[in-house]
Design a protein around this nucleic acid. Structure first.
Lengths: 233, 233
DNA sequence: CGCTGCTAGATTGTCAACCGTCCAATAGTT
DNA sequence: AACTATTGGACGGTTGACAATCTAGCAGCG
């Protein structure tokens, strides 16, 4: 982290497919690529200024992660967030995050909780000024941090994948969210359960948090064609 | 599931990268490709009779799954199963399988347990004739079935990835296993906990099963250079 | 009028050849 | 013997081309 690093470090850039995958992930998470939309490889390759090979590899990655689905000889499409899909996603996220929390309790739950409380404070500040986008970012950050605190490469990798899908939902539903304060409180509750070294409470609050998210997304999904939550085409 | 389906269904064959990925997965799971070994793409492409494009896509998939790791401008290598890696893998597997079990309890734990008991019977028959390879297959099958019974696409997908890594370990450790009968009993215990609709017991036995596996693999890893569990090179 | 079958266009899937980059082993020097 | 320069080999990426396949539109027929 010395100043000199800034000059000698950036020589090793990550591979092109990695960059492409990241860009696409962000585009999907931010809703620039909509659910069900097709990704034409010729067009994308031109736009991104790369050839089809690395592009295909990058898209391959997202397909593997479940963000895209492929139809043979037809192309790749952005996954559609059916209510069932949302439920399943949160089921998987719940599995990962609960396991992460359990792992944290074998390490250092108190300092982990403290770190997460920092995030909730950022979230609270953003909520105070009605900056919902930043609240959402902090939301994601909170869960990402939670899992990374378990120091498990696999849990982290799996969770990252799931988070992109979450981002898809959150972004599209930001405005439908209930009170931001409530949202902050829920996260703070989890962090505080950690600092108080109460495993059962942490687990319980995590589960409640997930169930709550499913509920909100499900009711939004039953609305009039909101998102891509109901049948496309 | 009508008989006619058998004639109209199989028209879509899987893509070349899929086939390649499967072949490599099997090769790794069966120990034909050893831990730490490099996969030269030129050579592999020649052997498999495909060009570099699809081959790279297939290998890309395994990299994403964590079975291979890539070193820039050097190539792809089979992951090395360090004791730490094994621990992390079982941590992730535990997270998934426990969540799957919990989900099964919301569906039909009794018939699920019955189905798993069938698998344990196969396992028992193989154990009776000292066919350890088949016991291992049944072991994998048991866990695969367990997760698929939760009917969660994501849990299933994630778990499949982890199982290939498991297969790597199991195959290499088959001969070091303690009594096969004990192994059968452990699995039967889990299945019976399901049929008796005892969630807490199921969870407890699952955790015990995983911890047991870690313990066995860890002690085997401390042996004299067994597997690729200790430092390669 | 509706259905079948064909054709054209577009897109994906695969291959092959080419070059720049980077690592690592080797050879050569001090 | 230790260090440095060279060089070979493999990967990463690009380009271009061709085959396979799907969609859509149109002609022909009952």
């Amino acid at each position: 982290m010395t100043p000199a690093d800034r000059f000698i470090e950036p020589l090793v850039r990550e591979s092109t497919p990695s960059i492409i995958a990241d860009k696409l992930r962000k585009a999907i998470g931010h809703g620039e690529l909509k659910a069900g939309q097709q990704l034409g490889e010729a067009e994308l390759a031109r736009e991104l200024g790369v050839s089809r090979g690395p592009l295909r590899e990058g898209m391959q990655r997202l397909t593997q992660e479940g963000l895209l689905f492929s139809v043979r000889n037809r192309g790749l499409f952005v996954i559609e967030m059916t209510p069932e899909n949302v439920r399943d996603m949160y089921l998987a996220r719940s599995a990962i995050e609960r396991a992460a929390a359990e792992q944290i309790f074998l390490l250092d739950p108190v300092s982990a909780g403290d770190e997460l409380l920092d995030v909730t404070q950022q979230m609270a500040r953003a909520a105070a000024r009605q900056d919902i986008a930043t609240v959402s970012d902090a939301d994601i950050e909170f869960h990402q941090r939670l899992v990374s605190l378990a120091r498990s490469p696999r849990l982290t990798r799996i969770h990252n994948t799931l988070l992109t899908e979450t981002r898809m939902c959150i972004h599209a539903l930001e405005d439908t969210y209930r009170s931001s304060d409530e949202r902050v409180a829920e996260h703070r509750g989890i962090a505080e359960a950690l600092t108080s070294s109460d495993h059962a409470l942490t687990d319980q609050r995590l589960v409640a948090h997930m169930d709550d998210a499913i509920l909100r997304l499900a009711t939004a999904g039953t609305g009039p064609g909101r998102l891509g939550l109901v049948d496309q085409r």
